[in-house]
């Protein structure tokens, strides 16, 4: 009998590389380790991951990283260029330190991204997997509903929701989540349809598994990887939609530091004081790029159709 004690003698590396796991936990660790090993071989994905980790660290340590209070105005020091008197990235039209606003804005961005990422894909997954598995009228009804949501331009629909709910960051997130789920439902349904007729689903059915058990235990795990990929690739779009709402004044409300809102106010000075709008723009660009790169890398690792041998 092999026990965890004597297998771990070869060190953590050997424990993670063995092909004979000894417990459920061990098996899970090994598959995570393998996925990580695949991902870490992809340079661009690692760049993307580094950007995202930097964003998270920035959000956590914002009070220490910021050089000034992001909301304190110094009207005498308005629109100073980057590097001026300790203002690393200059000041905005109210004399607030742009670097500090960017740092605190990371929190808002992360908050939006996080909330959307845990709501829209989950909702889409449920709708898609149920529609695909049950089929028939359920499928038709759910998919037409999805089509209706898909038919609207995303920003316009979000605008309508925000207009109805009132401006604010939470409502902006809600509006984005409400407009972001239909593509996930489509992806989940497509994935479900390819899986539904497979022998292992038939086997589960023959075992007496209920439809609910099949959807949750057998179908959903097969959809998750394509959804994760899709979410990371969409993150850039979500940040931009949030920025767009902020830009239109329907997202984050002043004086909250939010990158989209910063561009919005900065645009009036774009020609004379380029940095006010450009720097938050660069921040959005970098974070979007980070998510895109990671998403591409994850696709290579997670896609079940990829030829991994």
């Amino acid at each position: 009998m092999t026990t965890v004690e004597n297998t771990s003698k070869g060190g953590l590396g050997a424990w993670l590389k063995t092909d004979t796991p000894t417990s459920r936990f061990h098996a899970r660790c090994i598959s995570i380790w393998n996925a990580w090993a695949d991902l870490s071989g992809n340079f661009l994905a690692m760049v993307g991951l580094a950007i995202i980790i930097a964003l998270i660290l920035m959000a956590i340590f914002a009070p220490w990283l910021a050089t000034a209070n992001p909301n304190i105005q110094h009207l005498g020091d308005r629109l100073q260029p980057p590097g001026w008197q300790g203002h690393l990235l200059g000041t905005d039209e109210l004399g607030r330190d742009i670097w500090s606003r960017i740092v605190f804005g990371a929190r808002v961005t992360l908050y939006i991204v996080g909330l959307v990422a845990v709501t829209a894909p989950v909702f889409g997954l449920i709708i898609g997997a149920v529609a695909g598995t049950i089929g028939g009228w359920t499928d038709r009804l759910l998919m037409r509903l999805t089509d209706i949501f898909l038919a609207f331009p995303r920003l316009i629909l979000a605008l309508a929701f925000v207009a109805a709910l009132g401006p604010g960051i939470v409502n902006a997130v809600l509006a984005i989540a409400l407009t972001a789920w239909p593509p996930y439902a489509r992806v989940a349904r497509a994935e479900t349809l390819t899986v539904r007729r497979s022998d292992y689903i038939a086997a589960a059915r023959l075992q007496g598994a209920s439809t609910l058990r099949i959807i949750i235990g057998h179908i959903m795990p097969m959809c998750v990887s394509s959804l994760i990929i899709r979410v990371t690739l969409d993150m850039a779009g979500i940040i931009l939609t949030a920025a767009g709402l902020g830009f239109l004044g329907l997202g984050a409300q002043p004086p909250l530091a939010e990158w989209g809102a910063m561009i919005s106010t900065g645009r009036q000075y774009l020609l004379s004081h380029w940095w006010v709008a450009t720097i938050p723009g660069l921040a959005i660009l970098t974070v979007s790029l980070g998510f895109n790169l990671l998403g591409d890398g994850l696709r290579d690792v997670l896609d079940p159709r990829g030829n991994r041998q």
Binding site: P21, A27, S198, Y200, A202, L206
Partner: peptide, 15 residues
Amino acid sequence: MVFQDPYGSLHPRHT
């Protein structure tokens, strides 16, 4: 029942 294709009859993500 036991199916023909042993590659298709086991869930690829279940141990």
